[in-house]
Structure formats: C-alpha cells, structure tokens
Design a protein around this nucleic acid. Structure first.
Length: 476
RNA sequence: GGCCCCAUCGUCUAGAGGUUAGGACACGGCUCUUUCAAGGCCGCGGCACGGGUUCGAUUCCCGUUGGGGCCGCCA
C-alpha cells in the first residue's frame, strides 16, 4: 500500500529568442536546486517551435551562459524543433477524440472579431464556431485543402490550480476560450508543445515564472485532454527592474552574459539569484552551491516579485573576491586584464593587495595591468592637490635617496621616505601622496610601500623620474 | 477592459496570533589608517489603508489602494 516514490523530474525550457535573462537563470537555478535536493532529474529543453524567431546561435548562447553559471542538467538539451512528429500525432489524436477541433476562420476574420470586441469594450473570446462543425464535415474540408487551426475544446468548468507557492487558485471557465494548438501552416504552437513535452518527459513539477500563471489553466486543460498526469506547479515571482516593471533588456544588464562581461563571478551571481525569492531561514547570505542544494525548498520561496539590485550583486561579488584563492582569482582575472600583467609571483601578490579594493574581476584585471605598464597620465585633481611648488625638489631628493638603497622592500622604502620627509621638515604624507600619484597615476589604491616593493626598484625609480620631469615641466 | 497574482525599512528578506519587528545591501557617523578600500562599532529607516475575527493582529478573512502578469495562427 505504499506509494512508489516517483523521483521528481523538472525542466528549464527557455526560448532561444534572446540571450539568457537573469530571470531565466534564476528559474533554471531553482529547478536545479529542487532536483538536487529531491534527488530528481533536471532536464533542459529548448523551446524553438517558432521558426521565425528562434535562432541556433541564441540557443548556443543560452547553453554557454548556463555552463558558465554551472547550471548542469541531467538530460538534454532537447530541441522541440526536432519533435514535430510527436506534436502532429498528439494533435491528430486530440481531433480524433474530439478533444480538439479544426477551426476554419481566417486570420482576417479573427482580427475583425477582435476589433469588434475591442470597440464594444468587451473582452475578446474566440467564438467557438469550430466546435459546431461535424467531424465528418471537418475531415472533408481538411482533405479538400481548406486551411485551419486546431483548437482545444476547453471544459466549461472552473479549473483549479494548486500552486506550491501560491496555494489554491481558481480560474472561472468564461475567462478562457478555445485556444489554438496548431497553426494553419501545420506548426504546433507554444502551449501545445509545452504540454505534450511535459507529458512525454514525465515532468512532475513545473517551476517557472509568474508570467505563466495565467496560462496554467490552459495547460491543465491540455494535460487532461492528453490524458496525462497533471504536474505540480510552482510559480515564481517576477524579477523586476528598479521601475518595478518586469526586468528586460530595456533596463540594461538583464542578461547573464552582461554580468559575466562586467567581471561578476558566476558563483556570486548564482548566490545573489538564489536569494532573490528564497532564503535559507537564518541570517546567512553567502551560501555555497552545496549548501543551497542541501537546503533549498519551494516552501521557503516567496510569492512576491523582487527588484534586481545591482549594488547588492556587486557586494556579493566582492565577498567572493575576498575569500577566493589568489590563484583562482588570477586565472579568472587574466581575461579581464586590458594589457600585460606582471609575472605570476608578482601578480599573486598584487591580487592580495587589491582583493579588498575591487568589486569585480574586471577591476582586478585593471589593477594587475597597472603593475605591468607605466601610467600613461596622472589624475588631474591629484596633480592639483598633491603637487606643490616645492614638490619636485623634495621628490628629487627622495629619488636620490632611494637610488642608494641596498635592498628594496616595503620597510626599506618606507624608512627612506620618512627620513627624507623628516630632513625636509614635512609630514610624510607630503611625499607619500605625490609618490603614489607618480607611481600609479592615481591617488587611491593599495598601501604605497607594498606597491613600491612589488614594482621593484627599477620600475619605481623609472616611474618617479618620469613623474619628476612632468612636475618640473608643469611647475615652470 | 476581463481574469489572475502580489503587498514587512529605498532594495533583498526573517517572521507563520503575544517579538524592543531580526539580518543584509545602500545611506550617515565613529574607529582603523600614508590614500582608497576592506573590517569592526553605532545610527537612520518598515508591517500601504479600512473593516472584521480574536482577550490580542505584521501574521487569519473581506474590501480599498497601489504594483505586476496574462488575455495571438508569439514564446
């Protein structure tokens, strides 16, 4: 009398009509986390039934974004475009069983109906005229070459959806009409393919965006018509832009790859996305994938929409940068470095100097590059603020002193600078700031003497001499 | 317009009848300090509104308001 424990089967089913959206990424993530937690199967399905809009390279793009995020699937990717036989057979069967029917209205006629309804201020519903056509008559007209769409015969009863996140939702029958399953050119339509596939793949839980909630009664009716078991549904709140509208390209940075290119670490993006709608229940914010996979549950997923906050993502990223090994960081920063970077040992030291000072690996790449190439120019405000008439003279004396240093360490250069300052009767800061500017071109950054040690004697002195020339020139 | 969903600091959230309503981001201050960060400490700031139910509502119910979504031979 015990139920056979069916292992959950979930899927992420993006349409390749654009790059992977952060909302899609979160949906994929929740499906994956649910599957791992429940020891189920995560399937990737590409919904490319729309031949006009779907593009192969976009589907590749989605795949690579998922790979980058580490969203691995157990089955797939399965392309709907390769399964037309399945949909055709299902449509034929539904027609034969009179659960669906052919409708012969032309697009123009439907359009006119829609316009009329609009003008009269009432909600448009398909008339259902096709229902009345006798099956024999329908077959004859189809054989005769008349064009038709296939429509589902919607039941005249309230459809109840038990949503795992929202609870019980009722859809009154007059809100739904007999929607189209197959176009007049024979191409199966989205809702139809979704249900045929979910049934075929034995999907047990449909975890998807809230924007599909209103479509769910259609799907329920379809599953019933198909004679398939109805999966459980869980509808996630939308991810919104700061204007509280559904996040889209329009908002900028809605695509996963934009964040990748901005130097966000995949672990950080995944962590951030996981927390957009789900929380472990305690105060932890930084969670490993293992922890998420262990603790994720749909019961703890919220129903309300959430605003995507780039600031918090950046913070999250900096948290990962703070704890990631220098080697790892170096490997990842390499792609972001705009130019040459120092040799490996120096780069690793530079990373330690900058890991708390950057929020993205893009910034880390820049920081690394700054050690390998001399500053091209100097911060204008910095020059104004830190270079006084007496500065070139003080700098010249400092350079002379540094030249004689037998060893070149943070300690020795600091001692030399402080002595020079004392000799001139000025605060060390009077020298530190211009030296930093001369060495790096900017007024902010890692502790100066560590930077000098890392740069080495030769490079440091070369940069300081160049800066000295510059300050003399602007001074006269 | 019809149907549906949502509603705790500016943002992400914890809370599941009795809490000084907790944490995080952001913001402000202090601290550390050669700069900038990071870190530490402190602070600012919230239950949309109105009715019920209840001894007692942020929490349950209804409504209002506000926001969002869906209404194609798109996905």
């Amino acid at each position: 009398m015990t139920d056979t424990p069916t292992t959950p089967r979930v899927r992420f089913a993006p349409s390749p009509t654009g790059s992977l959206h952060v909302g899609g990424a979160r949906t994929a993530l929740y499906n994956l986390l649910f599957a791992r937690r429940e020891r189920g199967t995560f399937i990737l399905r590409i919904e490319d039934t729309d031949v006009e809009r779907s593009r192969e390279e976009l589907s590749e793009q989605i795949l690579s974004a998922m790979k980058w995020l580490g969203l691995d699937y157990d089955e797939g990717p399965i392309h709907q475009s390769g399964r037309w036989e399945l949909y055709r057979a299902a449509a034929d069967r539904l027609i034969a069983e009179e659960k669906a029917y052919r409708a012969f209205e032309t697009p123009e006629e439907l359009d006119a109906d829609r316009k009329r309804a609009d003008a009269e201020g009432r909600a448009y519903r398909y008339s259902g005229a096709g229902r009345a056509i006798d099956p024999g008559e329908s077959d004859r007209r189809a054989r005769a070459g008349e064009r038709f769409v296939v429509r589902l015969r919607m039941p005249a009863e309230t459809i109840v959806v038990e949503d795992m996140i929202r609870g019980r939702i009722e859809f009154p029958p007059d809100a739904l009409d007999d929607f189209a399953l197959v176009r007049s050119d024979g191409h199966p339509l989205y809702h139809f393919c979704v249900c045929v596939d979910d049934a075929d793949m034995r999907i047990t839980h449909v975890i998807r965006g809230d924007d599909h909630l209103a479509n769910t009664p259609k799907h329920v009716a379809l599953f019933q018509a198909l004679g398939a078991e109805i999966p459980r549904f869980a509808h996630l709140g939308m991810i919104l832009g700061t204007d509280r509208k559904k996040l889209s390209k329009r908002h900028g940075a809605a695509a996963v790859e934009e964040w990748r290119d901005a130097g966000i670490l995949p672990e950080a993006l995944v962590n951030y996305l996981a927390l957009l709608g789900w929380a472990p229940g305690d105060d932890r914010e930084i969670l490993s994938r293992a922890e998420m996979e262990k603790e994720f549950s749909l019961e703890r997923v919220g129903a309300s929409p959430s605003v995507f906050d780039p600031e918090k993502l950046l913070w999250m990223n900096s948290q990962y940068i703070a704890t990631m090994s220098a080697e790892e960081l170096l490997a990842r920063s390499l792609k972001s470095a705009p130019g040459a970077i120092p040799d490996r040992p120096a780069a690793l030291k530079a990373i330690e100097l900058h890991r708390t000072r950057v929020r993205t690996i893009f910034e880390m790449g820049r920081a690394l590059a700054s050690y390998a190439s001399d500053p091209a120019d100097y911060d204008a405000d910095g020059l104004k603020k830190n270079v006084k008439p007496e500065t070139p003279n003080q700098l010249a004396k400092l350079v002379a002193r540094l030249e004689t240093l037998p060893d070149w360490t943070a300690a020795s250069t600091e001692a030399a600078l402080r002595e020079a300052a004392q000799e001139d009767g000025v605060a060390a800061g009077k020298l530190i700031h211009p030296v930093r500017l001369g060495l790096t071109g900017v007024t902010v950054g890692a502790p100066l003497f560590d930077v000098m040690e890392l740069l080495g004697k030769e490079t440091s002195l070369r940069r300081l001499r160049a800066f000295l020339e510059r300050t003399k020139a602007s001074g006269s």
